[in-house]
Design a binder for these strands. Structure first.
Lengths: 340, 340
DNA sequence: ATAATAATTGCATTCGAAGTCATTCTTATG
DNA sequence: CATAAGAATGACTTCGAATGCAATTATTAT
């Protein structure tokens, strides 16, 4: 035993009266070991409490079985769910999640250094603060990367994304079919890719119905920011009949602001739609019409894409879009008549 | 360069015309290297794109710098926040989070094997399914463990817990000071330690005011379960004037059930209190009176306790309690008069 | 200039498991 | 019973960085 009291394959070999190679072979599948040796080794291992040292194994195998997952702590609300599911799918592939937080651009260099040092097999990036240059660094070191809900302009890196355009089109179609003509877009933070994608999705959908130049206010995905920016908007502008929010949390904030401070009703006076399908969106007080992301399938796809890349690095980068699922709540009604 | 194209310290040494030891020393703080050598090495490293291999370093250092964090995916709602904060504090200690999910007792053995194999420096357990026996296994291998919001009966392992007793006492005191006499406790899942602690906290607090045998219904921490179990209870029992819920999400479910199906008002007819201080608890429709856990301090304490244990394994196990913080919302009012 | 001391440097070994290769032991076959 | 074919085994090397130790060079004091 060494200083740290760790039982090594040599200790087991000694106790079992065999060589270290024999011990190693017992723990590798598909290698020929006689039944007698195997039993001796397992018995000794059991008695000593031996567990193969994964670190040593990583060194010789040139593969760590670790996947770096990069998150930003102030990400969109459904990240916990996404993280838990990612972790599950990664565990099923017999790999582990090594977690990194990236909150601002400053930390970028440090985090990348660390990820490279840890020799991870691959990277899943859930964060906004992740420049194309950084991705290049991983490429240089032959580390496959999959982006989650984010795509590079040149699609040089594999991505798994919810189809925000399609989701927003469904929401806008519903609003338009309810005769709405006066819209407000409540967008998410300008530095978030998802927020940008949803904003442009909303604009495109409105454009296709002939609505140009829709007003936009910007929040930061939070309930409070939604209330503040709507309240500020209402002071200087005529109210819209429909608000398209970048996520459910802001939609809920908007609804509360409309009811409490603007003294109007949702959906009778103003219709509100969200995006994400968080559990609060179905609560009785809100019953949001929203689009939910198929996170189960998206996380599964992300892990599969990554594992394939790890096994065959030459697979060209692929972008997979998943359609959102419309959830019709009770936050959309026919637009009030203009002269009302 | 080796097969995987990795640049090693030997490559750098060769390029810089020095020995491998010299390269190694450049990357170790507090070791004497001449300015000339350092510059040569750094220049060569830069050109080749060398990053020290953390795996090799772990092997020789007998320390991985990795902390295993065990979560269960269906844990209490605030786990994402807790996980993000834990990760942050761990990163500040210059260590990494290796994530494990433990959803049921079956996986226990596998997860423990993995954790031991990965030679983590320590373990933070956030999960319910974690028997005292398992903790012993880590002790055998000299791996420090800190439990989060969970304590062992014999306190043989360090824990960081929110003081649920104190929190529930504050909540019950408020209800009693509003003249409530008829209570219902809406408890969390029976297999959760936190849920049990909150249940017993509520019972103790009520007892101290002379209320014995308060009725209890059990939910699973979710909004839907709260609505269901309250609805079932209401069919067969007289309604209480105050409901003490094991967490905010269930409190919100209870409020919606009261308003929508029991056609009563909160707080005028029935008062409701929750626990956790999730963001939704302050939303206008609910404005819960609740107790928030000081997760920032708790996670910081957990990491500090663990790091201390890693550095000095002989520190005896310690249980640290953090008081919850009362948030007075608008979900508690004076009890309606009995003959109303 | 020279001795004495301090600062650098390289060699060789270590961490623990896995795999190559040569050798020994089985087993089956003629 | 001899022998070829196959299975099982152990000695030794590898992965990449860190470090004790001895040797070398630089610095300071005399």
């Amino acid at each position: 035993m060494n200083k740290k009291n760790r039982v090594t394959s040599y200790d087991v070999a000694h106790a079992a009266g065999v060589s270290q190679s024999a011990v190693s072979r017992v723990y590798r599948p598909g290698v020929s070991v006689s039944k007698k040796t195997r039993e001796k080794v397992l018995k000794a291992a059991e008695e000593l409490g031996y567990k193969p040292n994964a670190i040593a194994r990583m060194l010789i195998n040139q593969s760590t079985g670790m996947i770096a997952v990069i998150i930003s702590s102030r990400a969109n609300v459904n990240f916990p769910e996404v993280l838990a599911q990612l972790n599950k799918h990664i565990a099923e592939k017999n790999k582990r999640v090594l977690l990194f937080t990236l909150d601002d651009a400053e930390q970028l260099e440090t985090v990348i250094e660390q990820i490279l040092a840890y020799q991870v097999d691959g990277v899943v990036a859930l964060t906004a603060h992740f420049e194309p240059d950084s991705v290049t660094q991983f490429a240089k070191h032959n580390i496959p990367v999959v982006l989650y809900n984010r795509e590079l302009p040149d699609h040089s890196v594999s991505s798994v994304c919810c189809n925000h355009d399609q989701g927003l089109r469904m929401l806008v179609d519903i609003l338009v079919s309810h005769h709405h003509q006066h819209f407000l877009i409540m967008a998410g933070p300008k530095d978030s890719d998802v927020a940008r994608a949803r904003l442009s999705g909303a604009r495109n959908a409105l454009l296709s119905h002939g609505f140009t130049d829709t007003n936009v206010v910007y929040g930061d995905y939070s309930y409070d920011s939604a209330r503040e920016c709507l309240s500020a908007y209402a002071e200087k502008n005529a109210l819209p009949t429909a608000i398209i929010c970048a996520n459910d949390t802001m939609a809920i904030g908007a609804i509360d602001e409309i009811r409490e401070n603007l003294n109007l009703r949702v959906p009778e006076d103003i219709s509100v739609v969200g995006f994400d399908g968080i559990s609060a969106s179905s609560w009785h007080s809100y019953q949001l019409t929203t689009v939910s992301q198929p996170t189960y399938f998206m996380t599964k796809a992300a892990v599969e894409t990554l594992v394939n890349l790890i096994e065959s690095p030459d697979i060209p980068p692929e972008t997979r879009y998943w359609p959102g699922k419309l959830i019709e709540g009770n936050s959309v009604a026919a637009a009030p008549r203009d002269n009302e």
